[in-house]
């Protein structure tokens, strides 16, 4: 091996040290190694041993930047770009999943508020028609269902404001019977989707503890709550400014907030359950269905929770 002693080019910042700083050539780079500064291929450049710490370095002939040999050779600019793109893609997938959950929560809660307020709307229309002096006038208002007794009949809001909504709800059969019963199917679907979302989320967000994942799962629900709130406020404002309104619209305003809140609650309850059973369920599935040679590739499911990863050697169940 050829050994030469070089005096390093004078760095601008430490001229006093330069005199004592010598570099000894120990070898030559024969593989691919790109300069970290300008990307120039350092093949053929000397490997130098610097005198202070005896570190092995190479110096780029183009830009003069020193590359320590202990570092991994960089893979080129596109490797880092692809890695960034993959990370950004993963983030987009997570955010898209959260957005889809928000939209599902919002859509189903809207359906629940429509369906859940139908019976109360019918009741309000019939109560209004049964009120002496009020019923006949409602038949003169144009709109869908004129002449028929249903929730689309227009109701004089002065009459409604003088009434107690809670009393009417009680007389109609109570919230559970008149509003909750028709929408339990929607709530079960929210619970099931929330459960699936929680399971997938707890596995996708492995860096997060269960408590943190449960808090993060609030994000899609909060987005849905924001949209629901704006819709409910708009409905209430419209109702406050109107003189006549359909019985269904009144019922939606009276029951909408609680139907929205209960829908969100079911969704989040499913998510919480999913977060807590997600990783154990995934580990059980992996242990049950995957041969050991594949199991080791999914060891991160164990490591994330501080558990010993599954054995890679052939193990038999049970």
């Amino acid at each position: 091996m050829t050994e030469q002693t070089h005096t390093s080019p004078a760095p601008a910042t430490a001229p006093a040290d330069t005199a004592a700083h010598t570099e000894t050539r120990v070898s030559t780079i024969i593989g691919d190694r790109l300069c970290v500064g300008c990307g120039f291929n350092l093949t053929g450049q000397p490997v130098l041993k610097e005198s202070v710490y005896s570190l092995l370095i190479a110096r780029c002939p183009e830009c003069g930047i020193v590359a320590p040999m202990q570092e991994y050779p960089i893979l080129g600019k596109w490797a880092a770009r692809w890695a960034s793109l993959a990370a950004a893609g993963w983030l987009v997938v997570i955010l898209a999943g959260a957005f889809a959950l928000s939209m599902y929560t919002f859509a189903v809660s809207m359906a629940a508020s429509e369906v859940g307020s139908e019976r109360f709307g019918d009741y309000i229309a019939s109560a209004y028609a049964a009120t002496p002096g009020a019923g006949p006038s409602s038949q003169n208002i144009t709109g869908f269902g004129v002449g028929m007794m249903n929730r689309f009949n227009a109701v004089d809001l002065d009459w409604w404001r003088a009434e107690s909504a809670a009393d009417h709800l009680r007389q109609a059969g109570g919230f559970r019977h008149i509003a909750a019963a028709p929408v339990t199917g929607f709530w079960i679907s929210l619970l099931a989707v929330g459960l699936s979302g929680g399971v997938i989320g707890s596995v996708a967000m492995l860096h997060a503890t269960r408590r943190r994942a449960a808090i993060l799962m609030l994000l899609p629900v909060l987005v849905a709550v924001a949209i629901q709130t704006s819709i409910h406020v708009t409905r209430s404002t419209d109702l406050a400014a109107a003189t006549y309104e359909s019985a269904h619209s009144i019922a939606r305003v009276e029951l909408g907030a609680i139907l929205f809140a209960l829908s969100d609650m079911w969704m989040y309850a499913g998510m919480i359950v999913g977060v807590f059973i997600g990783r154990p369920a995934a580990r059980w599935l992996v242990r049950t269905l995957l041969p050991p040679r594949h199991m080791s590739a999914l060891g991160f499911l164990w490591i994330a929770d501080g558990k010993p990863p599954p054995a890679t050697r052939r193990t038999q169940i049970p």
Partner: peptide, 17 residues
């Protein structure tokens, strides 16, 4: 060309070893 792999003891490039 193989990726450079420097011997951390003596500095020889082991890329072709």
């Amino acid at each position: 060309m193989p990726i450079s792999h420097i011997c951390l003891n003596c500095g020889v490039d082991l890329a072709r070893v």
